[in-house]
């Protein structure tokens, strides 16, 4: 670990040609005790997330909060405008005519929930991120085409330059490359 920091090594990355090999490798790596690792795939693969131990997401909670804020804010605005700030008596009808406020309340609920979903997703993923070391790996551009990558970070307690490389080599990859910081 200390050695890795000195030479500016981010980690070791292995390239696989099928999703099956990657899923297998991710499971093996977790079973072997590595914890600081991430997989990179051209499309979402549920088994990879599961193998890496990503369970649940805080996003639905954020969206729920956004939706509740939108509903309260939307209705509150209409109530305040129609009852307090600018009351108009039209034929003696109630000022808080809540039925007429339903459409705008619905729209503001959806708007804030959708904004929470997108901004929350970006925030949880730490995006936008202009620089990330993993892009230094040669051939990493293929992760957005048809190759599957597994990276063990040098930060990991168990990381050892030689032992980790031979471990990754044993998982039947196309190649194992260094990722510089």
């Amino acid at each position: 670990m200390e050695y890795a920091r000195k030479v500016g090594l981010y980690g070791l990355i292995a390239e696989f040609d099928t999703s099956d090999r990657l899923i297998h490798a991710a499971e093996q790596t977790r079973a072997d005790g590595y914890r600081k690792l991430d997989a990179y795939t051209p499309y979402p693969i549920e088994e990879v997330s599961e193998a890496l131990g990503h369970h649940g997401s805080r996003l639905p909670l954020l969206v729920l909060i956004g939706g509740i804020l939108g509903a309260l804010g939307g209705f509150g605005l209409q109530y305040w405008v129609s009852v307090i700030a600018y009351p108009l008596n039209i034929g003696g009808r109630p000022l808080n005519s809540w039925i007429a406020f339903v459409p705008v309340t619905f729209e503001s609920t959806v708007l804030l929930a959708a904004l929470a979903a997108v901004l929350g997703m970006l925030a949880l993923n730490g995006l936008p991120k202009p620089y990330h070391p993993v892009f230094n790996a040669e051939r990493f551009a293929l992760a957005s085409r048809d190759r599957y990558f597994l990276c063990i970070e040098a930060e990991d307690e168990k990381f050892d330059r030689e032992a980790t490389e031979s471990f990754l080599q044993g998982l039947d990859p196309i190649g194992v490359y260094e990722v510089e910081n």
Partner: peptide
């Protein structure tokens, strides 16, 4: 800076 990380895909699909 999208890099197709498994953790990102997980949140992405939920979103």
């Amino acid at each position: 800076g999208w890099r197709g990380s498994a953790a990102h895909w997980h949140n992405y699909e939920t979103a």
